[in-house]
Amino acid sequence: MNDIVVKTEDVVKEYRMGSNILRALDGINIEIERGEYISLMGPSGSGKSTLFNMIGALDRPTEGQVYIDGQNMSQLSQRQIAAFRCHRVGYIFQSYNLLHVRSAHGNVTLPMIFAGISEKDRNERAEKLLDMVGLGDRMYHLPDELSGGQRQRVAIARALANDPSIILADEPTANLDTITGREIIDLIKRLNNEQGVTVISATHDLKMLDVSDRIVDIRDGLVERIRNRDEIEIEVGDVGGE
């Protein structure tokens, strides 16, 4: 397997905070293969969420390039970037980011509306996806009427709506209790196994370790080290006790 889905070249991101310049990413080089489950780990402020945003085309790097499916993201038009976000990537956020005016079903159909899928087809697919994440009986509830775990399930179903090849998850379990977090991780891992989607997750949840193929440790805007799964399994024994 040598099919690179995501490649970053010397990605730098600077934020201007008044007169100070904060260098959140200081030249990141990583390659991610198709079908991998990657965890970006690091303390808060390390730059992992910023890197997440760069890979997902949610923000533009100050310097450097991001290639996805061999395409240089900086050369895409606005319309292509919108299509990229719509079709190629499914986003899962720490705070769910559901539209609170739309029901679970309405949230899942929205990306399909943007993709131009017919009403009949998108309703069917939304029902199927919500069934799959275990919310078949709460489809028409508003997000405010759902628990945190249920909201994250809606977000996962929504992320899968247009059959993306990459799932980007930014701290998906940070607002959830241990057991619910475990269920969400299992669900994401199942998608990774069964549908072959590449999962890239920014996290500092240690439960994420034992499902990851590789772990990228980010510190001070740099890649500190990249560990393979077999290197970490021993360590997991120490922390994974529930």
Binding site: D69, Q71, S77, R79, Q80, A83, V101, R102, F114, L142
Partner: peptide, 28 residues
Amino acid sequence: MQQRTPIEEQIDLPFVESLRISFQSLKI
């Protein structure tokens, strides 16, 4: 390397769809 489909252009939504979404938003 697998074949790489170039990234397409995002389509415009029909006006009715925008109308529906905006009214739904006002209603809720």
